[in-house]
Each structure stands twice: as C-alpha cells, then as structure tokens.
Amino acid sequence: MSLHDDAALVLKEYEGQEDLRQAYLDHLAAHPDGMWKACHAGHLTASALVIDPARGRVLLTLHRKLGRWLQMGGHCEPADATLAAAALREATEESGIAGLALLPGGPVRLDRHPIPPPCHVHLDVQYAALAPRDAVQQISDESLDLRWFAYDEVAGVADESVVRLLEATRARL
C-alpha cells in the first residue's frame, strides 16, 4: 500500500472534523502527489504532540523557520510506510527521545494552516506520542529550543492549534 493510500484510509476512518476530513480526502483525490512537499497546492504533513501524562506536561519545539512553539512534525518522506510512521519518525527526530509510542486510536486532530512559500498550505494529521518515563530530550537542527511545558502553560506560549491538540489528546487519554 502506498503512503497516499494509507493516508486516504486513515482519513476515511477518522471520526470528527467532518468538513476538514472531507477536504483532506478531496485534496488527495485531486492530487496524486498530495503527500509530498513538491505539491504546491498543499500537502499532507504528519505531527505528534509528545506528552508525559504522569508529569502533566508536553514537549514543544521552538520551530526554527516559524519562530513558534509547536508540536513535533513535518513532511512525509518516501521511506515512511504509513502516516503514523511519519508522525512517529518526526517526533523522534525532533525530540531526540527514543522509545516514543503513538497514542492508540489513530490521529487526534486535523489542522489546515498556511505556511510560507514554497509550501503554502499544510494539511496536518496530528497524533499524540507518549514519552517513556525516563525520557531525555535532545534538540535537533530544526529547533531553536525544546522545552517541557505544564498543561496549563501551553496556552501562554503556543497558538490555538496546539492548545486544541493538547485538549483533544487529554480527552483521548
């Protein structure tokens, strides 16, 4: 199964955000290259909020290009077998944490947002990743900073998309 086919299947099974979910499916149907950065009409991305429920905190990255505190995530790559694998790879690469595990149940949310050219639009499929008890983060080249935030601190540093992702993740837990 191709990554494009996997993404379509994941989205067909996703419950909630019906209009946005359908917009993602329509995009994939209209764009065979809709998984890749080269699709300038927009493309799917995969992200994961790294969460430590035992300590009531999430790990956010200060994105180098956007200058905002965000969950880990980014573009799909040809080696990604599934959308979930892309989200887990991105979370692991950007957090430096080995042993992350995606929260069961598939994506937590969808978020469509504008991005500076050449990308223009990201159709982000957002997962949540549980950090192991002994998690030690390590900053990547894609980040200006990497920091744990208590749940109640997130709204003060991140945008509404991250706040909604945290709320949905906590509800899933």
Rank of each mutant, 00 (worst) to 15 (best):
M1A: 13
S2A: 04
H4L: 12
A7L: 14
A8K: 15
L9C: 06
L9G: 15
L9E: 15
L9N: 15
L11C: 03
L11S: 06
L11Y: 00
L11T: 00
E13F: 05
E13W: 04
Y14S: 03
Q17G: 05
E18N: 07
L20E: 12
L20R: 14
L20H: 03
Y24D: 06
Y24W: 04
L25W: 09
D26R: 14
H27Q: 05
A30Q: 05
A30P: 03
H31I: 03
D33I: 01
W36Q: 13
W36F: 08
K37S: 15
K37D: 13
K37F: 10
A38H: 05
C39T: 04
A41Q: 04
G42A: 09
G42D: 11
G42C: 11
H43N: 06
L44K: 08
T45S: 08
T45L: 00
A46Q: 00
L49E: 09
I51R: 06
D52R: 00
D52N: 09
P53N: 02
A54E: 09
R55Q: 14
G56P: 09
G56I: 07
R57V: 03
T61K: 14
L62P: 06
H63C: 11
Q71T: 07
Q71N: 09
M72I: 09
G73M: 08
G74I: 10
H75V: 07
C76R: 08
E77L: 15
E77I: 07
P78M: 08
P78T: 13
A79P: 08
D80S: 12
A81R: 15
T82N: 08
A84W: 10
A86R: 12
A86D: 09
A87N: 06
L88K: 02
E90T: 03
A91T: 07
A91Y: 05
A91D: 08
E93M: 13
E94Y: 07
E94H: 02
E94Q: 13
S95L: 07
S95H: 02
G96D: 02
G96A: 01
I97R: 05
I97N: 05
A98R: 12
G99A: 12
L100P: 06
G105S: 13
G106N: 13
P107Q: 15
D111T: 10
D111W: 15
H113W: 10
P114L: 03
P114A: 12
I115H: 06
P117T: 11
P118V: 12
H120M: 07
H120W: 15
L123D: 10
L123A: 11
D124Y: 02
D124G: 01
V125Q: 11
A128D: 02
A128L: 08
A129I: 03
A129F: 01
P132R: 04
R133K: 14
R133V: 14
A135V: 00
A135G: 10
V136Q: 12
I139T: 06
I139G: 02
S140M: 02
D141E: 15
D145F: 00
L146I: 10
L146T: 06
R147K: 14
W148H: 00
W148N: 05
A150V: 01
Y151F: 15
Y151E: 04
D152K: 10
V157A: 07
V157G: 11
A158L: 05
D159K: 08
S161V: 11
S161T: 12
S161N: 09
S161D: 08
V163N: 01
V163Y: 01
R164W: 03
L165Q: 07
L166M: 05
L166W: 00
E167S: 12
E167G: 13
A168W: 14
A171F: 04
R172Y: 06
L173K: 01
